[in-house]
């Protein structure tokens, strides 16, 4: 009996000592380390454009109501260790636009190393490096009208590309198709899909590809399905071309595009895995991307 009483007493003691004003409040605010603002530097460079646009802003804590601001500083671009561009400020007001600009002396050459550096008096220095990827030649692009049937029973067209992958180096590609109305003079990106081949990874737009599983192969072939209303229902007198662009991108862009895509998919889905947006800017955030492109035009037979 003695032990029974002790047991009950002990339980009551536990219960009472744990009572407080917020006894039933199971949600508490917690402090996490304050975010330290960093420089954010964004720029992408295509091999066919000497003009450069760069955004230099700052990051803010995700738990604040603050907004990023344009940052001023010294921004330079070096080619193979030699400074080539000192960026000049551009007067813009929308933070979505660039606030620095400049020009390359000559087009980027594959294998050259470009280093982008920005120094701010308040946020320190950030750098990012890209090695210009070698362009790759498209061996062939074909279009077949109504080549197959989709999962929901509709006829779909097929686009097939073939190219040679250089041996011994990691290569990353982006494939993009654009439909051009040669009469109406408009163009639009084509929606294409391939849900079978695991090598094809959905990027920010269209697909990005790593050559890890086909390094050095010739006539690497990828197929895509499309279902363009304009091609299925051509109006008399209209003419179409398909512009296929195969971009050689860097590994950093391959990862960036994947994370960008994932961030879009994540939006609003509470069950989805959290997404870390990839950054290749040391000491800060952002993306510095260099790519080379090869394009070809075909006229689809309808």
């Amino acid at each position: 009996m003695k032990y029974s009483i002790y047991s009950f007493l002990l339980l009551f003691v536990f219960t009472f000592i744990s009572c407080s004003d917020d006894f039933f409040d199971q949600v508490v605010e917690i402090d996490i380390p304050e975010h330290e603002s960093k420089l954010v530097m964004n720029m992408k460079v295509d091999d066919d454009n000497l003009g450069l646009n760069l955004g230099l802003t700052n990051s803010v804590g995700a738990l604040t109501n603050d907004l990023p601001q344009y940052q001023s500083g010294i921004v330079t671009l070096s080619r193979d260790g030699v400074q080539e561009v000192v960026f000049a400020p551009i007067a813009n007001t929308s933070l979505e636009d660039p606030n620095y600009g400049g020009f390359l002396n000559s087009p980027p050459v594959p294998g050259e190393t470009f280093t982008l550096t920005a120094t701010s008096s308040t946020l320190g220095t950030v750098t990012s490096t890209q090695v210009v990827p070698a362009p790759v030649t498209l061996n062939s692009v074909t279009f077949e009208n109504d080549a197959g049937v989709s999962i929901d029973g509709f006829d779909v067209d097929e686009l097939k590309i073939q190219f040679d992958d250089p041996l011994g180096v990691e290569n990353y590609y982006e494939v993009e198709f654009r439909l051009i109305d040669t009469v109406g003079n408009w163009s639009d990106r084509m929606y294409v899909w391939n849900d079978i081949d695991p090598i094809l990874v959905r990027g920010a737009r269209n697909y990005v590809i790593s050559d890890l599983t086909f390094d050095g192969q010739t006539d690497v072939t990828f197929r895509f399905n499309s279902d363009e209303y304009a091609l299925d229902n051509p109006s008399p007198g209209e003419g179409y071309k398909i512009k296929t662009t195969l971009k050689s991108i860097t590994k950093e862009e391959y990862l960036y595009q994947q994370s960008f895509r994932a961030l879009r998919d994540f939006d609003g889905n509470p069950f989805a895995e959290p997404v870390v947006l990839y950054s290749n800017v040391e000491g800060g955030y952002g993306a510095f991307l260099m790519r080379t492109s090869t394009s070809t035009f075909i006229t689809p037979e309808l």
């Binding site: 955004g55 990051s59 803010v60 804590g61 933070l95 952002g286």
Partner: peptide, 9 residues
């Protein structure tokens, strides 16, 4: 943790 303007590829 951080919010910023990121490049739209």
């Amino acid at each position: 943790e951080a919010s910023y303007f990121a490049l739209d590829p």
